[in-house]
Design a protein around this nucleic acid. Structure first.
Length: 726
DNA sequence: AGTAAACTACTCTAGACAGCATGTC
DNA sequence: CTAGAGTAGTTTACT
């Protein structure tokens, strides 16, 4: 279909033509002819990069221009929210306003009301629904990207509930990878189903075994025995490769190994640029390896890397500077990063209980990354058979069908939280209404029966009543109690809330960082670290040393959860080090973790301590305890000792600058106000920008000559805690 | 006896969503 | 029930 024939607002056609697109891909055309433009629901199951986004944009903008109202675009990752936000921003030329909201960004309610297109993570939108923001009424279209995540064990229930809520309130456009039972999904959503495996770049799939590459059509090619030759070959052809492995350690090892073999394939300018890139990285144990790999044009990519490093690697790969990325599943879904050749080294992964085959759906998503539109005529996806029979792999992953989607609503943890929300935030008034609502879910559509989930729901309701999240009156009507309502809005697991409340008496008696951090670490919402075997004794000793500070008993060795407990102690200790200004580098070393891990722990702890405070407020809080908790929250957020609390409240002053200021003798805000600009600039990490910010904060005019001068002092005053202590 | 190689037993393992906007009377 | 890589510790082989 030609864009000019598209039955949508003329302005939309103009924008698309302006992008140089004149013709729609076949599946796009089919999707747009399905009735979706007339308001019908649609499930669109087509490969990544075959133009789902453009379909969404056309449907979305057309709807907004014709009917007004709002459209919500749901994504599974914060990084994707950002990506989509930037893409949709282009439509602001038509007078529509675009916003993105995730846990990182602006939160509530009415602020978002001023926007027409709202990009949000599923959890964030769920949270917005719970808060009952007024503008939700105006949502006329919900687009759920990567809707197959409805089958994800821990996050699927959220998506399912959102769609159940919105089903008869808004038009639904569900974008899915190819799944085994798309028609079932469409049936639930009362939607037209469009399925296609058409791709703008042809995809060749094959299996590699001991030097022999067998394509799905039976053609064979010979290579050196080691699979690395596949990656090197791609680079030799002037292309790029993406290698998927199943552990961080493998990603790092393979990157370094490939890197050493690639040096001669690089040009002089590339070598120089790569060296610069490597040198720009901060120093820490993981980055040393990364630097080595990058100098040879290879990078590894996993969740231990910080946000900045990941983005840097992605950009350098897109620019063609980095030739090969070895990655854990961080790159298998999510951000758009195609490569000519995709090599899948592992098809099994360790998953808590043992080794499992990676689902077909996931492997096919990895394979779908092969082929860069505009650069490649074909993309190649190759599975490496190392121990498994190549024929089995060919059957299962290349020729096989992806798994069916199953509702994960009955997952106990997710369901507990959702049942609470239904009662406290969505006006479900009694058990009958609860069951009625469940009748609208994918779970019911799929199973045609709710008896087993009713049983679970009943248990949960009893649990909620027993723990005073809700109550029931004489007519068996639910009553939302403040504790329940707040728990639901804080978006924490009811079990977490219960743990907090049970700990309040002891906490009041003996508020201390270690006890509080351990409490946080022991909740199901926290991602705790694992204690290694050889660390067991250390953390057990630590626990006994701090026994009086803990709010729980130390378990016995035989107890279930003993190892988990040690992990909690380890996590608490990391947080304790953090607020005692132990430098990041030393934390990575001591605990064997990476920057991404630390960031994750801090992010979660920050959210949970806030929630702890909010819940404590509901139970006749003691003023001194409350202010103790608030100070601790601030210390946690900035990673500082108590004496820096005052400085850290200033704009752009974090743990490093605050310490530097303090060491230089500026110990209070008052000291800073009275300081000479020249003296402030002499402090490590403080430049003109920061000083300007400070003066603006205090509402003081910056002296004219300082503005012009602003020269940096020759000798900076050092600013670490060690400097202070020595 | 000294040392290097070979063998064995043990350890470890992916990812990533959510709140809210401060202050002591 | 299903792995595979790395490491720490132990035994064996050989001079």
């Amino acid at each position: 279909m030609r864009i000019e024939e598209l039955p949508v607002d003329e302005r939309i056609r103009r924008v698309i033509l302006g992008r140089g697109i004149e013709e729609l891909y076949p599946p796009q055309a089919e999707a747009l002819r399905s009735g979706v433009l007339e308001g019908k629901n649609l499930v669109l199951a087509i490969p990544t990069a075959s133009g789902k986004t453009l379909v969404s944009e056309i449907v979305m903008i057309n709807k907004l221009l014709r009917e007004g109202g709002k459209a919500v675009y749901l994504v599974p990752l914060k990084a994707l929210a950002e990506e989509k936000y930037r893409e949709f921003k282009a439509w602001e030329s038509l007078g529509l306003r675009v916003a993105a909201t995730t846990g990182d960004y602006d939160s509530t309610d009415e602020w978002l009301g001023r926007y027409d297109i709202i990009v949000a993570t599923a959890e964030k939108f769920d949270s917005l629904l719970r808060h009952g923001a007024g503008w939700i009424r105006d949502v006329k279209l919900v687009i759920a990207d990567e809707v197959h995540l409805i089958g994800s064990y821990d996050r699927g229930a959220t998506l399912e509930m959102i769609l159940s809520h919105m089903l008869d309130k808004a038009q639904i456009l569900a974008l899915s990878a190819t799944v085994g039972n798309a028609e079932e999904l469409a049936g639930w959503l009362d939607a037209t189903l469009v399925v296609s495996d058409w791709r703008p770049v042809e995809l060749r799939k094959g299996v590699f075994h001991l030097g022999e590459l067998m394509w799905e059509d039976g053609k064979r090619e010979s290579y050196p025995e080691n699979w690395e030759s596949l990656a090197l070959d791609a680079v030799r052809k002037g292309k790029q490769a993406l290698v998927f492995v199943n552990t961080r350690r493998s990603a790092e090892k393979e990157a370094v190994s490939l890197s050493s073999k690639m040096a001669r394939l690089l040009t002089k300018p590339e070598v120089r640029e790569l060296r610069e890139l490597a040198d720009s990285l901060e120093s820490n144990p993981t980055n040393e390896k990364l630097k080595r790999a990058i100098r040879g044009g290879v990078a590894f990519h996993h969740a231990g890397l910080s946000r900045a490093e990941r983005t840097m690697i992605e950009d350098a790969f897109r620019d063609g500077l980095i030739k090969v990325i070895t990655a854990t599943p961080t790159l298998s879904a999510g951000i758009n990063l195609p490569a000519f050749r995709v090599i899948i080294r592992d098809t099994k992964r360790y998953s808590g209980f043992g080794w499992t085959d990676i689902p077909v759906l996931e492997i096919q998503q990895m394979m779908g990354r092969a082929g860069r539109p505009k650069y490649d005529r074909v993309g190649e996806a190759i599975i490496v058979a190392r121990t498994e029979d190549p024929k089995t792999l060919m059957e299962r992953y290349v020729k096989g069908k992806p798994e069916k989607l199953f509702s994960m609503l009955a997952n106990e943890n997710a369901f507990r939280s959702q049942v609470l929300a239904l009662i406290t935030n969505f006006g479900i008034g009694n058990f009958r209404e609860l069951i009625d609502f469940l009748g609208r879910t994918f779970y019911f559509h799929q199973r045609k029966d709710t008896s087993s989930i009713e049983y679970k729901a009943k248990d949960i309701v009893y649990f909620l009543i027993e723990n005073e999240f809700i109550d029931m009156d004489l007519n068996d009507r639910f009553i939302a109690l403040p504790f329940g309502k707040r728990t639901s809005q804080l978006y924490i697991d009811p079990l977490t809330a219960k743990k907090f409340r049970d700990a309040f008496p002891k906490l009041e008696e003996n508020p201390n960082p270690f006890g509080i951090f351990h409490l946080i670490a022991s909740t199901p919402d926290m991602a705790t670290l694992r204690a290694r075997k050889r660390e067991f004794e250390d953390y057990l000793d630590l626990a006994y040393e701090f026994e009086e500070k803990l709010y729980t008993e130390i378990p016995y060795y035989e107890d279930y959860g003993f190892q988990g407990f040690l992990g909690e102690v380890k996590t608490a200790k990391v947080l304790l080090d953090w607020i005692n200004e132990v430098p990041e580098g030393r934390i990575y070393e001591t605990y064997g973790i990476d920057p991404g891990d630390l960031y994750r722990i801090l992010e979660l702890a920050d959210w949970l301590i806030y929630s702890l405070i909010e819940l404590y407020k509901l139970f006749e809080p003691k003023k001194d305890v409350l202010s103790y908790l608030r100070d601790l929250h601030l210390r946690l957020r900035h990673g500082v000792r108590e004496e820096l609390l005052e400085l850290v409240r200033l704009p752009n002053i974090g743990r490093r600058r605050a310490r530097a200021l303090y060491n230089a003798g500026f110990r209070t805000q008052d000291d800073v106000v009275r300081a000479k600009v020249r003296d402030l600039l002499a402090v490590e990490g403080i430049g003109m920008k920061v000083v300007e910010g400070l003066f603006r904060h205090f509402g003081v005019e910056l002296p004219e000559k300082a503005k012009k001068g602003g020269k940096t002092a020759e000798r900076r005053k050092k600013g670490t805690l060690d400097d202070f202590l020595s």
